[in-house]
């Protein structure tokens, strides 16, 4: 079991919220995606693949089988689900350094929320309410979200370049080629495994195998 797959980390945090305050949170969620600027901080933090907040009413938790005991919940719950690059610390810290106000806006109505600054109580709050990931599938384990975005930019730019250069002169070709590279100057990073973010024996061993080219035997040495 691990919260980590390749370069991505999966985080699930579930926190109780009083039923009569739930609508406030829903309103905030609605407004946040509509009103320009509210999510700028989140978007600027380039380590995030994906983040989603959902409210689960207390009577809407999955009940899969009649044999599953019925639970009697006192609160509604807010599920926060995110995939990001880097370590837990890097992510949680970036959030609190960069957008403490945004965090507080979303979590303020949750029971026992500590506020995002100071850091340690916030760390404790997240850890306490985090659900460990039991299974985590990652289609592109070597890619950070920036790598995916860059790859898409490189691809579309190349296709366009090919179209634009069918009939041009040599000088014009060079000019367009330089323009192509210039336009892609923030999209040309290499793609290899990250420095390991955990010292768990499992991750350290995998890294060693990658260096030795032995992960391939397990069908896992992407590109090597």
């Amino acid at each position: 079991m691990s919260n980590i797959a390749g370069k991505a980390y999966a985080m699930n945090v579930i926190t109780p919220i009083r039923s009569y305050l739930t609508w406030v949170n829903k309103l905030i969620f609605w407004a946040a995606v509509k009103v320009p600027g509210v999510l700028t901080g989140l978007v600027t933090l380039s380590l995030i693949h994906y983040a989603r907040w959902v409210i689960i009413p207390k009577d809407k938790f999955p009940h899969l089988d009649p044999s599953q005991p019925k639970e009697n919940l006192n609160y509604n719950y807010m599920l926060f689900f995110s995939n990001f690059n880097g370590s837990w610390d890097q992510y949680v810290d970036s959030f609190t350094f960069a957008i403490p106000g945004g965090l507080d806006l979303f979590w303020k109505w949750n029971i026992r929320y500590s506020k995002s600054v100071a850091l340690t109580p916030f760390h404790d709050y997240i850890r306490y309410n985090q659900l460990e990931t039991i299974h985590y599938y990652n289609a592109y384990p070597l890619a950070a979200s920036n790598d995916v975005k860059s790859a898409k930019t490189v691809k579309s730019s190349l296709i366009q370049f090919e179209k634009d250069t069918q009939t041009v002169s040599d000088e014009e070709f060079l000019k367009l080629y330089n323009g192509l590279l210039r336009g892609l100057q923030h999209d040309l990073g290499d793609m290899y495994p990250t420095p390991i973010v955990t010292m768990s024996a499992y991750q350290v061993e995998r890294r060693q195998k990658w260096h030795e080219g032995k992960l391939a035997e397990a069908g896992e040495n992407h590109g090597k």
């Binding site: 901080g41 970036s94 350094f97 960069a98 957008i99 730019s157 323009g179 210039r182 892609l184 923030h186």
Partner: peptide, 21 residues
Amino acid sequence: KPGSLKVSKGAFNTPGALSDR
């Protein structure tokens, strides 16, 4: 412009939020 980046004004709590720590 392709290949350019700019300040994401006001995105973070303080401009150096990701460096100060």
